[in-house]
Design a protein around this nucleic acid. Structure first.
Lengths: 133, 133
DNA sequence: ATCCCTAATGAGATTTAGTATCAATAACAA
DNA sequence: TTGTTATTGATACTAAATCTCATTAGGGAT
């Protein structure tokens, strides 16, 4: 017997799919607990890790902050707003970055992580308002 | 009076320069304490943060693990060995990644972080030995 | 339908990396 | 030499995530 189809796994996965805003693990915990209050934080973390490991979800590692999760697994990147912390999708092909490296470093490249930091449209507006005042 | 030239700052910076292996903050703490045992962990963290903020050192954010520091500040990237955790330099121009994004996402891009993961030459060897045995 | 094995869960302790607090210390300008 | 205050050291604290382990429940076997 290998992998059991538990209620908790179904709920966490469904919840992640329903939340389209790249939630953190703790945000998923809160959301799941609103309908299933007895689920444990450790369980949600375990299930999200498993989803990320199996490729059913993406783990977005944010500089400094908590990991975010994305149920969309097609190849894309993320922008992280340095002001409000929001995470958004970016679809941009960046080809061959990894393979370009293999000969120069001696490392066998397994992957790379590319993450952008910036200001989201809302925070840009707020900045302008503050500057104007 | 703005910035004071303290013994601690000199020692931490010198130590970082002397350690060419992209140490973590705690590795710097250990190294400094070997000759100056009374220095505080908080002090080393503060000084490294200041060096990174002022551009006198680079902060290398490793997925999952502790930040590493690099006294070399010319533009380059890093490879992180997923097996032993070692960090190595990669010099490869990646131009315009940020500016390519500005129109597609609505974000005002302030920067990006690009980090490679792979196996260092030593760990590749170990892997082959294990596979052969 | 029941039993049994063990994967998975829940609760809480633990770890790791880093920051905050604050009294004591020590640069450095006067 | 002195006074101001940036900086330090010690420690408490926080955040994110993992670990531990007794208990629960999925699902194959009977």
């Amino acid at each position: 017997m290998q992998e059991r189809n538990t209620l908790q796994k179904r709920i966490v996965h469904e919840t992640l799919i329903r939340m389209c805003n790249h939630p953190t693990a703790d945000e998923v915990v809160a959301e799941v607990q609103s309908t299933y209050p007895t689920i444990s934080r450790a369980t949600v973390y375990r299930i999200l890790n498993k989803l990320a490991d199996s490729g059913e979800a993406l783990r977005i590692r944010i500089n400094n902050g908590a990991d975010h999760f994305d149920h969309q697994t097609f190849p894309h990147y993320h922008v992280h707003c340095s002001s409000c912390g929001k995470v958004a999708d970016v679809t941009m092909p960046v080809k061959e970055l990894g393979s370009m490296l293999s000969d120069t470093s001696g490392y066998k490249i397994q992957g790379y992580s590319l993450q952008f930091d910036g200001l989201c449209p809302e925070c840009q507006e707020n900045e302008e308002i503050e500057a104007g005042a």
